[in-house]
Design a protein around this nucleic acid. Structure first.
Lengths: 217, 217
DNA sequence: CGGATAACCATATGGCCATACGGTTTTTAC
DNA sequence: GTAAAAACCGTATGGCCATATGGTTATCCG
């Protein structure tokens, strides 16, 4: 009987506006009024879809992390279809987190801003922790699968390796964020590629003798 | 002729209050009034020492980064005096940045909060960038000195190695921050030590045949 | 002693923001 | 066609905050 609208689409629209504002002027510049204006709607409508500002921010955070994760998974799926070695696929997926172009830069700014606020906002912190854990699990699974393909030494424990790879990726993202032009004459993209490659070479020591696979437990 | 007070001490006192507030309740909880109360003084006095809130925050950020750096340098100096291998000394210095105890946890929270705000505060960003650059320079110098001691292959370029070591350290700090208890049954301290050790082993491949030294260009 | 100067204080002010609230419009079911 | 429910709007309100301002107090020099 009632008038109807696409709830999820509206909420995504608002989340987009939040991200635009954060990326452009920082998390402190995000007010409900400004978000509504950016999204092209009224303050009241934003309130209609989110009980409070905190709820709105939480949803935006979940939205952006989900989007990044989806991109990484797409890359992995594509790599598998093209029968690339796992280490290649993983290198590409990890590079998704390093702010090397405008899109990734925007995402990095948004997630970093949220991570900063997560320091004293348990709901945001939970998203942050869960996201990081999932990434580690994905990496560990890739390493595990690498064993079956002969790319990884069967005796290697995937977990410390996953923590390590997640750490370099995240740290590298910070470095590139601070010096987008690169360091000591080396462009950021090359630096990133070489460091990730080197780091993966420590784990993926064997040749690939099967096609790549990332799925399965 | 005038009444006199220790300017720098007062400013440090205020910076301490800011850090206490950030660590306890986040950067958003830092107001001039609350800072004054925490520092045990009036709002007017804080204004007397800082023209604006931004100036106050900037000084607090500089203060805390300087303090952390001083601690790392102390560690290095002590290591040199005890004739430890450079890789040992460096391992200890890098571990200073990982939030493994309450003091480091507090510092990590404060610097991370500032790093988040630095996304749209050029003055803070400058401090952040400069701090990171200095750390890389210190690491690169250590690697360079490692060559003269025979711990490092003379053909190795210290710069990518320094970026890489800085990246793992920073990334590891994030991981430990999110999972202070450790991951997959491995305590955070052990995980940290083993990863830093492994990472350093890639660079410091030789035996130490001289006493350690970190100074010099 | 006196006055200049810095240290220090309490309050006023003006702006911004999250949220509350009362309303109008549109759709659909019957 | 009408009633109900949701979509949507604009404004009011109350709180909080940075900063401005007009003071008082202590110290020291001459």
């Amino acid at each position: 009987m009632p008038r109807t609208a696409d709830h999820d689409q509206r909420r995504r629209q608002i989340a987009d506006a939040v991200c635009t504002l954060i990326s452009g002027h920082g998390l402190d510049a995000v007010t409900v009024a400004r978000t509504a204006a950016t999204a092209g709607m009224s303050v009241g409508l934003v309130q209609h879809y989110f009980r409070s500002k905190d709820e709105m921010l939480l949803h935006a955070f979940q939205e952006v992390t989900a989007r990044i994760r989806a991109r990484a998974e797409d890359r992995i799926r594509a790599g598998i279809e093209h029968r690339q070695p796992i280490s290649w696929v993983l290198a590409g997926a990890l590079a998704e987190f390093v702010p090397l172009d405008e899109r990734r830069r925007t995402e990095f700014r948004v997630t970093t801003a949220f991570a900063g606020r997560a320091l004293d906002a348990p709901a945001l912190a939970e998203v942050d922790v869960a996201t990081a854990r999932r990434l580690r699990e994905d990496i560990a699974r890739a390493v595990h699968n690498g064993k079956e393909c002969g790319e990884v030494d069967p005796g290697l424990d995937p977990w410390p390796a996953a923590v390590r790879l997640a750490a370099v990726t995240e740290g590298l993202a910070m470095q590139v964020h601070r010096d987008p032009a690169g360091m000591n004459g080396v462009p950021a993209a090359e630096l990133t590629a070489s460091i990730i490659r080197a780091e993966l070479a420590v784990v993926f020591t064997g040749e690939c003798r099967q096609y790549a696979g990332m799925s399965g437990s």
